[in-house]
Design a protein around this nucleic acid. Structure first.
Lengths: 170, 170
DNA sequence: CGCGATACGTCAGCCTTGTTGACATGCCTG
DNA sequence: CAGGCATGTCAACAAGGCTGACGTATCGCG
């Protein structure tokens, strides 16, 4: 069970008690609830769910992406995604166009209405993130990001890092 | 759009671009996936889901807690919780005993088998947390916790803080 | 004592969102 | 051109949220 290091010499060898780790675990649990609370509220009013949010978010970030791309970033089955996409398309928030290079592919983009919902959702989520960053202070942000990044599965980390990198690095 | 930080003076006024915030948002998304991946695997093998994990975790943390307590920390309806609890009790992982002070209440505890599963789950999750902490370095941990805490809804933060506090503070 | 409030369990039914299986279509290579 | 693979769609099912309604036991108070 608790095989641990000898002395906390602060280098790269941290002393981590089970209690400290449990605190971190519960912090993730409770924080994620807060993290999704605002968008969930907005989505609920419009009859959508978290899955719609995820699709909208990543289509916004990578306009013209294919269903397969989206699948691998979201990590769900294509059938699951497809149901969500179908409603978004039917409701006129997303358009799917046949690929020109490869006509099996569908390229996904937000319509103006889709972009508007995206804005509402991400405004809410950004506001919370901004407040949290400000409350925690400048030094905390780097640590936050570093731990989260280290917590991802390698493939997810690659996905994450492949996004637009800030010029000034994290 | 991209108003950028001219001088980061690090006091309490952070300049936060939309891109930086979006990075944080996606970090939460991808990290949470990693965070739940290991327990999900274990649970899947035994025919349980994430809901069972949550119940087991909090019963373990507060042995003898009542159904109502659990309800408010988990933030679900009693019907939802009850379904999970019923299977856990039927499978002999949890016992429910009538309260002595107030006999309407049911006090929940893990059986030996329940504690064993809890151990397997939290060992996996702690291992990931520990690795992430170590990879991110000593300074990152405080920042990680601070941002997460600031991201919670106030009631959730209260729940979170009401747990065993580390003597040495965070 | 009697009555309302509280704690818990349960049934029924709905929704979102995950899953697998079957299938249509398009590309590409032997 | 034929078969195989990739891409995406449709159908059906399960988990786990939710609301609403109800039953039962118990507590506490007037």
């Amino acid at each position: 069970m608790s095989s641990d290091s000898g002395t906390q010499q602060g280098r790269s060898l941290l002393f981590l008690t089970d209690d400290q780790l449990r605190k971190g675990i519960e912090a993730m649990f409770f924080a994620y609830r807060g993290f999704t609370a605002d968008p969930d509220r907005i989505l609920g009013e419009k009859g959508y769910g978290r899955a719609h949010h995820r699709a909208i978010h990543f289509i916004h970030r990578s306009p013209g992406t294919t269903v397969n791309n989206l699948l691998s970033t979201l990590g769900v089955t294509k059938q699951s995604l497809n149901r969500v996409l179908r409603t978004l398309i039917a409701d006129g928030l997303v358009v799917s166009t046949v690929g020109s290079r490869d006509r099996r592919e569908r390229h996904l983009r937000l319509t103006e209405a889709g972009a508007e919902l995206e804005r509402a959702l991400s405004d809410a989520q950004r506001a919370r993130m901004r407040d949290a960053y400000r409350a925690a202070g400048p030094g905390a942000v780097a640590g936050f990001r570093a731990v989260l990044e280290a917590m991802m599965d390698p493939e997810m980390r690659a996905q994450y890092q492949s996004l637009t990198e800030d010029p000034d690095g994290r």
